[in-house]
Design a protein around this nucleic acid. Structure first.
Lengths: 238, 238
DNA sequence: AAAAATTTGTGTATGATTTACGCATAGGTT
DNA sequence: AACCTATGCGTAAATCATACACAAATTTTT
């Protein structure tokens, strides 16, 4: 069933770019609407008495099963022509509903963009009523997204990069314990450039926020790396 | 006359934090509504077919007479309780208008925040129909602002500081030509800390975006400083 | 006119931080 | 046991920031 006008604020939506990291690539969650072949970012509408932040959190929770995630607002997309009515008709048709020309969902929407960083392995993907599927896609292998969702992704990536150092955004992309190499790969994939191993290690250890744990024995023919975790006591504010 | 519902998108507004620099202090534009004693940021509503960016630009143009200013969107304020109905009633009363409980302006508003940097001396302040006055206030001597406008200012300042180095935001706060000392003062006032003269000068010249011009003879009993300008060819993107 | 006062522009020395390189060491394979 | 590979860390080189100093430029004072 389509969202009801009387419960929501018209002309306002949110879209979320949810990043995950599979050990090699940076991925984002993309969903496919029923019977339309259309791909979109997880987004939704704001209830009358709900903050935009809460609306976005609710949307992510409903779609990933994850609670207590940190969403970062990065930009608001306010162009009057960013909305295409075609996809909306398609989605409605996919749901077996009919909508009129003056339906509120066909009007323009100003969308607040959020991004989140999740531990790829912890996310249990559960397509909701609207979607055929919800899946991780590598950011350089995205399907064609509807409307301006590709621009939203680009802008989110830009914001993520800008905040990487300042906000230690990498924290939530890795499991509790990780090797220095894994951490470095996260940085390399997000920044899309290679980093010097020794420099990186020194910088990270120099921040004084990593706790060293036991070594990780993988069975590979090499020295076993230490495992580290973020010492959340030492990571102030963010 | 109050803004008309039929021309605008409901529940959406913008607020702008307009920074200027008088040579000593960082200031922002604050306006006072007719007969209310209430101070607010210049803000407004979005027309049905207008982008949010354009709405904000229009608002600033109408109030400062300045065109072609660069507005930077920094945050969207989406809490459901950020709006106080009291000020709205007051503003209406100040205009001699009466509004009902269900008037669109009394509903909740999600506000997109923008900041701009202007050359203090170029701005001709022209209060519009709603306002008694529009004036520059030093950021540490602001009057009590209505609703959550103080938080909006704080957030704008935070964004300005974070972007200062990266975006050379200082560009628009100074006249075409300026001395190194003036540029340094801008940085010092925005960052709210003193900088070392020699280090600062070296860093700025090292960026390779300053053109040196003739000297400035002020009549002071000291060596005349060079005038500089930003070489816009060399300042990429921003 | 010379001296004083003041501020800019730049040279140089010192210190800190980043980057580069190398290698001992640990773990695994053959 | 010999060998291969990747980590962790020592150290050198290079880069960047800071401190200090001083000459040059300008007007006022003497």
């Amino acid at each position: 069933m389509l969202a009801k006008e009387e419960e929501h604020i018209t002309n306002i939506s949110y879209d979320s770019v949810i990043f995950g990291f599979n050990g090699k690539q940076l991925k984002i969650l993309v969903l496919e609407y029923h019977n339309t072949g259309m791909f979109a970012l997880p987004g939704g509408f704001v209830k009358k008495k709900e903050s935009v932040d809460d609306a976005a959190k609710r949307g992510v929770r409903e779609r990933t099963g994850l609670d207590k995630i940190h969403l970062e607002q990065f930009y608001t997309f306010g162009a009057p022509d960013r909305i295409d009515t075609e996809p909306v008709y398609n989605i409605a048709r996919g749901l077996g509903e009919k909508i009129n020309k003056d339906h509120w969902l066909l009007d323009r929407f100003i969308s607040v963009g959020y991004y989140a960083l999740l531990d790829y392995n912890k996310v249990k993907l559960t397509p909701d009523q609207f979607c055929d599927s919800i899946n991780w896609y590598a950011i350089d292998e995205l399907p064609k997204l509807m409307m301006d969702h590709k621009q939203i992704v680009d802008k989110a990536l830009e914001a993520l990069r800008a905040n990487l150092e300042r906000k230690l955004s990498s924290m939530n992309l890795l499991p509790e314990k990780f090797t220095m190499k894994e951490l470095q790969t996260v940085y390399e994939v997000i920044l899309d450039k290679e980093l010097r191993r020794t420099t990186f290690q020194r910088k990270m250890l120099g921040l004084g926020i990593l706790k060293r744990h036991e070594k990780l024995f993988t069975g590979a023919a090499n020295k076993a790396p230490y495992l580290y975790s973020f010492d959340k006591n030492l990571v102030q504010s963010n």
